[in-house]
């Protein structure tokens, strides 16, 4: 009983903490002017939303592109991070400390330094201004997160369980799908959430490598935010924040779901 009440309270607090900052943005997005010291706008208007959804504004296109880039970045980061994290988490080898340091480096070096260094390299490779180039650039801060999270997942993973599955007749692919993947899934989801949100919120790398041609939502948002159009900014900001909040809520449920059901069963 007390556990339920506590969980409800925590859930409400989380929801408030997530939703409260959105309230002014939501009001701005439907305000026709909202001047100090009015508590609420004197006039309302759907113009900002109409603009955000109009084909000419490119906002929806931006949203789609941002989703695509963040998804592709996440998938590629998982393809690298799962095997790399497995190697780091399971095996002791010479130079492991250095490898770990190199992996963390992009996450601790200031983004501006990475962006500047990367721009020259990508320019020579003909990758600037392309979606592929931007995805590759996003992988640089994302892969360390993914790899380190997966390394910690694998460090408590018993590979005998894979050997056991092999011996019970599972082919390597079946072992991965039926045994390894379910075991690492909570960690993988956390890593994917991080990866998605890190890519989702990239501004500097996208601007520098995309050269403005890869117009993700943060770039569009920034353009309006710096020009003082609070109504359009509010509408885009809500579009921008919404997927993150949805993913967070979904993942939070998924991440805790197993423990909860277990607790429920043990309690019953």
């Amino acid at each position: 009983m007390r556990g339920n009440a506590l969980r409800l309270f925590a859930g409400l607090a989380l929801a408030l903490w997530l939703v409260l900052p959105l309230v002014p943005l939501a009001i701005w997005s439907v305000a026709h002017g909202w001047r100090f010291p009015d508590l609420l706008p004197q006039q309302w208007s759907g113009n900002a939303w109409a603009y955000a959804f109009s084909p000419g504004s490119g906002v929806l296109e931006s949203l789609g592109l941002t989703v695509f880039i963040a998804t592709a970045t996440t998938v590629l980061a998982a393809l690298v991070g799962v095997p790399a994290g497995r190697a780091l988490g399971l095996h002791e080898f010479r130079g492991k400390g250095i490898v770990t340091l190199i992996l963390i480096a992009p996450a601790i070096v200031p983004g501006i330094a990475v962006a500047l260094g990367l721009h020259g390299v990508f320019l020579r490779l003909g990758l600037t201004g392309t979606v592929g180039g931007v995805i590759l650039a996003h992988l640089i801060p994302v892969i360390p997160y993914m790899t380190l999270i997966m390394a910690s997942v694998f460090s408590s993973f018993d590979t005998d369980v894979e050997a056991q599955a092999r011996s019970l007749g599972a082919r390597p692919v079946q072992v991965f799908i039926h045994v390894t993947l379910p075991a690492i899934l909570p960690g993988l989801m956390t890593g994917a959430l991080f990866a998605f949100l890190v890519s989702w919120s990239q501004y500097l790398l996208t601007l520098s490598i995309g050269g403005g041609r890869v117009q993700t939502l943060p770039l569009t948002l920034f353009t309006f935010a710096t020009s003082g159009r609070n109504d359009v900014t509010g509408a885009i900001a809500i579009l921008y924040i919404l997927p993150g909040v949805l993913i967070l809520l979904f993942t939070a449920r998924h991440l805790t779901g197993r423990n909860q059901s277990l607790a429920a069963r043990v309690g019953a």
Partner: peptide
């Protein structure tokens, strides 16, 4: 391969 042997190993831990 292990899955083609008709031999099954049971590990020390139940796993």
């Amino acid at each position: 391969p292990p899955e083609g042997r008709r031999v099954v190993m049971v590990f020390q831990n139940p796993l």
